[in-house]
Amino acid sequence: MTKTSSGVRIRADAALLAGLGRFGALAILIVVGALASDVFLSGRNISNIVTNASVIIILGVGQTIAIITNGPDLSAGSVLTICAVIATLMVKQLGIFFPIAILAALALGMFLGFLNGYMIARIGIPSFISTYGLQWAVFGFAYVILKGYVIYDFDTSFRFIGNGYLFGTIPMPIVVMLLVVTGGMFMLRRTVVGRELYAVGANRVAARMSGVDTEKKIIQAFILSGALAALAGIVLVARINAVQADIGKNYVLPVIAAVFMGGTSPTGGRGTLLGTVIGALIITVVQNGMNLLAVDSVWRDAVIGVLIILTVLIDITMQKRLARIQAA
């Protein structure tokens, strides 16, 4: 009996330690940034960082839920792109009332998420192949629609969600991000659906045995991921006031990095949205630092790639050590 309880305590301590480690990493990065650049700690730059992080966090919430339940949604960058393209096209070219355009984009994101979920759960293609494959087709269609052009300069009412300020002070991307994170946390922690998603990811067979419709849960998780990718796309284009066919390409690696930095387990069943938020802040601070230090853009993906590998390596090492302590 003592063995189990001490095992639980060690696990809890390790989780706490990992959480502190993430905060520590973020704090160190902030100190380094402040020392390296005068403007880093300016209010303007900080607001910039959090606003930039918001898009990654919105995507990251969907990604975290997908990975907890089954596996990565590597199509998120492409879904973001095509939904942004469709929404802006409706607003700008067809003059459709902007809430309808936003709803249409969300519906498209959910549809693409459904396709991913269907391929994974019903056909049985692993998510890192099905979503990776869907990505190329979707980017292809975004390219067909835009034909290499850029759509820019949208109506202020449409831009409010990315460019506006709530009560004149809080940037709207941060507001949307906070709503998404709170909603996601509530769903994962306080609802039956949330528990079932964790259960499906931790052990799909056991979840099915205990009466969970595992295929339906996987499809739901990917629909959610698709919807959030669409939302992130709308916020992003409303903020930067332009859209082109490869706008989402730069988001795939950073989002995956943020999720794993947040301690989500690659094999499913374990992960928190708070972790993803911290992970996204770390990634954004790193990106911001590279901008301020004028690091050549060619190295940006490389740095993120190395960060992904290092983070997961550290996580694996910690898990192994934990297992050894528990066994002793």
């Binding site: 690659p266 992904i308 590998i309």
Partner: peptide, 23 residues
């Protein structure tokens, strides 16, 4: 040897290797 999931290790390597080739 390190026990990483293949999709993570090779996705991370993808980012790194394109960075190297671009540079």
């Amino acid at each position: 040897f390190a026990g990483m999931e293949p999709f993570i290790a090779t996705l991370g390597m993808q980012g790194l290797l394109y960075g190297i080739s671009l540079a």
